[in-house]
């Protein structure tokens, strides 16, 4: 695959009966990235995925996948995609094997031996090898999810679009899915939505957060986690902090200092305007007070959950 950007959207939007499910969206998903697509329920994630797959038509704007228009070239695009719906629904009377065989034959017509081997590989990958002859209706929710993951990958897709791939899975199943996603990075681009922010933080390299149909944050995960409120340090101290706190707060390169007390320790969150000066002088200034013990000092790193909550609840954050 030579494309540097696998997905590009240009003001892509969707309105249902006058309600804007997705406001004009401009997004680029780079090749071989694991792109986490986040947002609360009803944010427009599934709508975006369905637009990319040609299952629904955009109200305005357009998208290209592998450089092809998502509406006019939809079947050609789908020949290179694997898709896992949010709530996978397969033909209930099909067995697990038949479901994978049916999926595979949209792409390949033979040879039979290779088809059988590929199905066996997929069953092994998702841990369903002992359930090949079970009908779909007898599978648990987690097993159906695993089958969904298998059928999405069965055609060696260049792009995987996964809508909540870890939903309905137990912690071990989730871990397996994350491992599979990481392994696929070499060959495939993964565009996936999830509510499990911890998973996103573990495997994604780029994240977009959608809220009420609007792209609220978008960028490399490191940028997002660094935050948009400038450089912030956190310091934990023991001792009488009043005088030093006032001194630090009055320094010209300190923008803000918030302090909290817990279990005899003070935690300061210090926002600075001059990173280089802060790096040299902040800790030194604090330690000048010999009555204080610094138990931890470091640059604040946001958790994705914090970033997400800030955005969804109305705060601003992120790398967009």
């Amino acid at each position: 695959m030579n494309e540097t950007a696998v997905i590009r959207t240009y003001g892509l939007s969707k309105t249902y009966d006058g309600v804007e499910a997705l406001k004009p969206l401009d997004l680029t998903v780079a090749a071989n990235s694991i792109f986490g697509f986040l947002g609360p329920n009803g944010a427009g994630k599934t709508t975006t995925m369905k637009l990319l797959l040609g299952l629904i038509r955009p109200t305005s704007g357009s998208a290209t996948i592998f450089g092809m228009d998502s509406v006019r070239k939809s079947p050609d695009i789908r020949a290179r995609i694997g898709y896992l719906p949010q709530e996978p629904r397969f033909y209930e009377h099909h067995t697990v094997w038949e479901t994978l065989d049916f999926t595979l034959r949209f792409f390949f017509k033979g040879p039979e031996q290779a088809i059988r081997q590929r199905i066996e590989e997929m069953l092994e990958l998702v841990g369903l090898e002992g359930k090949a002859e079970r009908t779909v209706k007898t599978l648990s929710g987690g097993e159906q999810q695993r089958l969904g993951i298998a059928q999405a990958q069965v055609n060696y897709p260049d792009l995987l679009i996964l809508d909540e791939p870890a939903a309905s899975l137990d912690p071990l199943g989730r871990r397996d899915v994350l491992e599979v996603l990481s392994r696929l990075r070499k060959h495939t681009t993964v565009f996936y939505s999830t509510h499990i922010l911890d998973d996103v933080q573990k495997v994604s390299d780029t994240v977009a957060i959608l809220n009420h149909g609007v792209l609220a944050a978008y960028g490399p995960i490191e940028t997002l986690l660094a935050g948009s409120s400038g450089v912030v340090y956190t310091v934990t101290l023991k001792g009488s902090t009043g005088i030093t706190r006032a001194r630090v707060a009055s320094l010209p390169w300190v923008r803000d200092l918030q302090a909290s007390e817990r279990e005899g320790q003070s935690t300061w969150t210090v926002a600075v305007s001059d990173e280089a000066t802060a790096e040299q002088q902040l800790l030194r200034t604090i330690l000048a007070d010999t009555g204080l013990v610094v138990t931890s000092f470091g640059r604040k790193r946001y958790e994705l959950e914090e970033v997400f909550t800030n955005i969804v609840e109305g705060g601003a954050h992120g790398g967009k």
């Binding site: 695959m1 049916f102 390949f108 088809i115 060959h187």
Partner: peptide, 21 residues
């Protein structure tokens, strides 16, 4: 598609795409 070289690809195009399956 990576890794699919051993397979014979389905060649249907246009409205016939997926018809056989």
């Amino acid at each position: 598609m990576a890794g699919n070289s051993e397979f014979e690809l389905v060649q249907e195009q246009g409205w016939r795409r997926g018809l056989r399956n």
